[in-house]
Design a protein around this nucleic acid. Structure first.
Lengths: 216, 216
DNA sequence: GCAACATACAAACGTTCGTTTAATAACTTG
DNA sequence: CAAGTTATTAAACGAACGTTTGTATGTTGC
């Protein structure tokens, strides 16, 4: 049975080279072609392993997807935990968090694309898994940013932070084809700080004017 | 050959009821299960039409996807055109545009989900189609918001506006499962105005502090 | 009535899908 | 070295895939 049921995502260094090759190739292909459109034969051929190797290590194609998603969520949780604690002022904490999120998303952009593009889909094996992870992660926000007295509900704030920081990477493959080489905005250099400031300014401005009928 | 090659998206009222049924069912299933994971037999069964009907009207499964995407982009273009002209101050125009975008996305949320989840994928038949549409739409922004003198490059601004406004709807299916019924933030009522204000505050704050080393 | 055309249908096409099996090779451990 | 575990392989399974074909049915204009 090997270690297919450890529940872990990224195979450790002790894992066989074939398992690592399957994992990395899957991330690349799932992000580029989509999970459902990627076949086991294409995957095993690109990874340079036998067809049966994939199911040997991951149980099934869906098990491989779950391992990738689990890995992504685990990394996301680490970033959130690291940047939600501390004694900073809320605005500074928010800015630091968003910038850290942007950097994390960039470092795992293929995994992020997989997670985002599979997000709205209704696969019964994956649905509850995603919802549980989301519940857990959004719970981390509860007692830190804003608090119950905040005029902005956390159920607006959390998706806004995550999705607006992440979604750039969803458009990036199209941007690369649509924009001329070297266009400003394509490079990642200034993005974390820019998106963090955009959000912290927007959030503070939003909180100030929250009472004047924003629900119309 | 019927009208499968008209290039239009949404079939008109003159189109047969079967064609309309195929189109609407496809939007629902593609958004819920993903394009590649939705089979022609499942689609035709759910639509209550014969299997061959789909290819009769749309040429192929991909032709059906293209019709949906074309329809989505055409509607998006109309919203952008309607809200990018006028003599308003930039800030007011920006706020109005973002709110209108949010309302449009909500009105076609299934089509939006399809467009977003297919965005990063590399299907050779679809890739250039998406890039061309994006080039056209981002061109609409060029001479309106900010202008060449703006410290924020349009290639940062445009994806930011579109993706941060749209991506909420990508998370919404998960939010509905993860959050308790009737949680604040799940309802759409306040969203357009809120996201518009968040962005316009964020943008102005970003422009003010643009010179102090935001590229670190 | 009869072309001409648009729509609808059942059946079959060849291909690819994810998964399983059984056998063997390679490595680890007592 | 023997025993047992881990890893790899070729081959095959039934099921589902997107598409095509040939034919029926209905409609329109002559």
């Amino acid at each position: 049975m090997a270690d297919m049921d450890t529940g872990l995502g990224d195979p450790g260094e002790s894992a066989p080279a074939t398992k690592q090759a399957v994992y990395e190739t899957a991330i690349r292909l799932f992000a580029r072609n989509g999970f459902a459109a990627t076949g086991m034969r294409e995957l095993s051929r690109e990874a340079g392993v036998n067809l049966a190797t994939v199911n040997y290590f991951y149980g099934s194609k869906k098990g491989l997807l779950k391992a990738i998603l689990e890995d992504y969520f685990t990394g996301l949780e680490a970033v959130l935990r690291a940047n939600l604690e501390g004694d900073d002022a809320p605005a500074e904490k928010l800015e630091r968090l968003v910038a850290a999120l942007a950097r994390y998303f960039e470092s795992v952009s293929d995994k992020l694309i997989i997670a985002l593009t599979e997000l709205p889909h209704d696969d019964p094996d994956i649905t509850e898994f995603k919802a549980a992870r989301f519940r857990q992660l959004s719970g981390l926000f509860q007692n830190v940013l804003g608090g119950p007295a905040s005029p902005i509900p956390a159920s607006f704030l959390v998706p806004a932070i995550v999705s607006m920081t992440a979604s750039r990477f969803l458009l990036l493959p199209v941007l690369r084809k649509a924009l001329p080489e070297g266009a400003p905005g394509l490079d990642f250099a200034g993005y974390p700080k820019r998106i963090a400031r955009l959000f912290v300014h927007g959030f503070s401005g939003l909180a100030e004017g929250a009472g004047d009928g924003a629900d119309g």
